Simulated scan of single mutants.
Amino acid sequence: MSDLRLVVFDVDGTLVDSQGDILAAMTVAFGDVNLPVPSQEDILGIVGLSLNVAMPLLAPDASRQTHHKLEDAYKDAYVQLRASQGAALSSPLYPGAREMLEHLQQQPHTLLGVATGKSRRGLDKLLEGHDLMSTFVTEQVADFHPSKPHPSMLQSALSETGVTTDCAVMVGDTSYDMDMARAAGMAAIGVSWGYHDIKVLTAADVVIDSFDALPAALEQIWGR
């Protein structure tokens, strides 16, 4: 029986703070189609969802064609913003993130993964910018899965690594992450520094306030 453990991280709002670029790109996208820009609260509320799900929530009265235009305009604006600064500056790692990833990576029976609403291209640029290309053994992106909270991303991560649900944990900042973990039969750790209020992280087994608290939270879950 395998003794491998898997820790899957969300990206935006969990490992990196990309809200500046997200808000700016949304402002550009909505301006391009002459629609009022949603509030910051509403925009950050959809972070983690795939764009084809997020845009109808932000512009419920717009047509499907307009939603597609919003998706394309957002992607283009985001790429331009990232290119102007570089991924490391436009989406900085949260304090303690790199150190915790390195700590977990050094554990012989712990595997790391990501499950993100980002595209394959977007994730690659981010990992390259932060020199994290060899950190994760499984990387699940929006291109190939239904949007969170559908469990497809986590099911694929489990399949790719051979880890069982009782030895896997999802770490994220949104209710979508917590609900995705529950749908996949996995434990969930919420983080308080992201884009959703911790009050909505009701499906989390535990919520942590810093990366320093993650090892204890993992042991709490796996020691039950």
Rank of each mutant, 00 (worst) to 15 (best):
M1S: 14
M1P: 13
S2F: 02
V7S: 07
F9L: 09
F9K: 09
V11R: 07
D17K: 09
A25M: 12
A25I: 05
M26I: 14
T27R: 15
V28P: 02
V28G: 01
A29G: 08
F30Q: 10
D32L: 11
L35W: 07
P38L: 03
P38C: 06
P38Q: 06
S39D: 11
E41M: 11
D42A: 15
I43E: 09
G45C: 09
G45V: 06
V47W: 08
V47T: 09
L51H: 10
L51V: 07
N52Q: 11
A54D: 05
P56C: 13
L58Y: 10
A59I: 06
D61G: 14
S63L: 01
S63R: 01
S63D: 01
T66W: 03
E71L: 10
Y74H: 09
Y78E: 08
V79C: 06
Q80I: 12
A83Y: 12
A83C: 14
S84D: 12
A87F: 07
A97T: 12
H103V: 05
Q105T: 11
Q106P: 05
L112N: 03
V114R: 01
A115L: 00
T116A: 04
T116S: 12
K118L: 11
R121V: 15
G122H: 11
G122R: 02
L123D: 05
L123R: 00
D124S: 15
L126Y: 11
L126P: 08
M133G: 12
M133F: 06
S134K: 12
S134N: 15
T135C: 14
T135F: 11
F136H: 07
F136L: 10
T138H: 04
T138S: 15
Q140S: 08
V141I: 10
A142S: 15
H145A: 12
P146M: 10
P146D: 11
S147K: 08
P149F: 02
H150K: 05
P151R: 08
S152M: 07
Q155R: 12
Q155W: 05
L158G: 03
S159F: 13
S159K: 15
S159E: 13
T161D: 05
T161H: 04
T164R: 14
D166R: 13
D166H: 13
A168H: 01
A168C: 12
V169S: 00
G172R: 02
D173N: 10
S175E: 12
S175N: 11
S175Q: 14
Y176L: 11
D177I: 00
M180K: 04
M180Q: 02
A181M: 00
A181I: 06
A181K: 02
A181Y: 05
R182K: 15
R182F: 06
A183M: 03
A183D: 06
A184W: 00
G185Q: 08
A187W: 09
A188I: 01
A188N: 08
I189A: 02
S192T: 10
W193S: 09
W193E: 07
K199D: 14
V200W: 07
T202E: 12
T202Y: 02
A203V: 00
V206K: 04
I208F: 01
S210Y: 06
S210A: 14
F211H: 09
F211G: 04
F211D: 03
A213Q: 15
A216H: 13
A217D: 03
E219T: 14
Q220V: 02
G223H: 14
